[in-house]
Every structure is written in C-alpha cells, then in structure tokens.
Simulated assay, not measured.
Amino acid sequence: ILTSGLLLRSSVHSPSSRRLSVSAGPMELKEVLQVLEQLAPLSLAESWDNVGLLVEPSKPRPIKTVLLTNDLTDAVMEEAEVLSCDLIVSYHPPLFRPIKRLAQKDWKQRLAIRAVEAGMAVFSPHTSWDSMKGGVNDWLVGGLGETP
C-alpha cells in the first residue's frame, strides 16, 4: 500500500507486525512524524492517552525502515534490531505511566533502553488512530453490520 511516499508490506519475522519502508528515499524523522500526524492528528487522542513520539534518538538519522506493530514486545524489538529499523510505530504506547528510572527489571523499560541504544525512534498513535475518520473505531463499528 503506497501512502504519502511510504510503502507498507508484510514482515517476514513477526505476524504481529508490519514493515514499513520509505519508497521515495530516506526522510528525516520530523518529516515522517508530519506524515503520521496528517493521517491522524494527535489532537484526536484521548486526554488520558500517551501518544506521539515516545523515544527520540539523540543523533538524527534518516528514516529508511519503519516497523509497524500493535504492541512492542521483546520479539518485535528483536525483529526491529535485525532489520536495523529507524522507527517503530507501536499502536499501543509501550511507555504509558511516568517512569522514574530506566532499569532492566521492568520489560517496558528494557524495551525503551534497547530502542535508545539502537538509536530507534518509537511513536505511538493509539487513540488518535481510533478517533480518525475511517480509523479503528469506524472499522470496529463496521464489523457490527447494518442495523435495521
């Protein structure tokens, strides 16, 4: 599927994720974020939600490969590392509650540490994708069928 210069194709390594490759050449992170926010403005998200850029690399690098997933798990992070992804788009925010420290004892914190160490950005759209026209909520309602 070609959308705003981004090509979506199935990933070989994980059925729960999709690999998104930039077809028109590398883009800067801020350009990719602009495209994502044009598709579903973050202002559509619920006030309680944690959406947007959750992990920002300290050194800018061109975004060539994006991994799209429902949930960022250890297996998805391993896939992202193998593919040398530049950006992970995780529908559900892997970081939700305030974090007081980054330690290896918590699996979500471990994922954040791995993303930082690999220089990968992490973005979560969650309820902004739910609320957009044609988004997740519309898709779910469509599954109910027509009412008499």
Rank of each mutant, 00 (worst) to 15 (best):
I1P: 06
L2I: 10
L2A: 13
T3K: 14
G5E: 02
G5A: 05
L6C: 04
R9F: 12
S10V: 02
V12M: 14
H13W: 15
H13E: 13
R18E: 09
R19S: 11
R19A: 11
L20Y: 08
S21E: 15
S21L: 15
V22D: 02
S23G: 09
A24Q: 12
A24N: 11
P26Q: 04
P26E: 03
E28C: 14
K30M: 14
K30F: 15
V32S: 01
V32L: 08
V32Q: 02
V32I: 06
L33Y: 06
L33S: 04
L33E: 13
V35M: 01
L36V: 02
E37M: 00
Q38C: 12
Q38P: 02
L39I: 11
L39S: 05
A40H: 08
A40V: 09
L42R: 07
S43W: 04
W48V: 03
D49A: 11
D49F: 05
N50R: 10
V51N: 03
G52S: 10
V55L: 12
P57C: 09
S58I: 05
K59V: 14
P60W: 07
R61E: 07
R61Y: 01
R61C: 12
P62Q: 09
I63H: 00
I63K: 00
T65G: 03
L67C: 04
L68F: 15
L68N: 03
T69H: 01
T69P: 03
D74N: 13
M77A: 03
E78R: 12
E79F: 05
V82M: 14
S84E: 14
S84Q: 14
C85K: 05
D86L: 11
I88H: 00
I88F: 03
I88C: 05
I88Q: 03
V89M: 03
V89K: 01
S90D: 07
S90F: 06
Y91G: 02
H92K: 05
P93G: 01
P93Y: 00
P93D: 01
I99F: 06
R101P: 03
L102T: 07
A103F: 06
D106G: 08
W107N: 09
K108E: 05
Q109D: 02
Q109Y: 02
R110K: 14
L111I: 00
A112M: 03
R114G: 00
R114D: 01
V116N: 01
E117A: 09
E117V: 02
A118E: 11
M120E: 00
A121Q: 06
V122R: 11
F123I: 10
S124M: 09
T127C: 13
T127P: 09
S131L: 04
G134V: 10
G135N: 04
N137Y: 13
N137T: 13
D138M: 10
D138Y: 08
W139G: 04
L140T: 01
L140V: 15
V141E: 11
V141S: 09
G142T: 06
G142R: 08
G143L: 15
L144S: 09
L144G: 12
E146Q: 12
E146M: 14
T147N: 11
P148I: 09
P148K: 12
P148E: 11
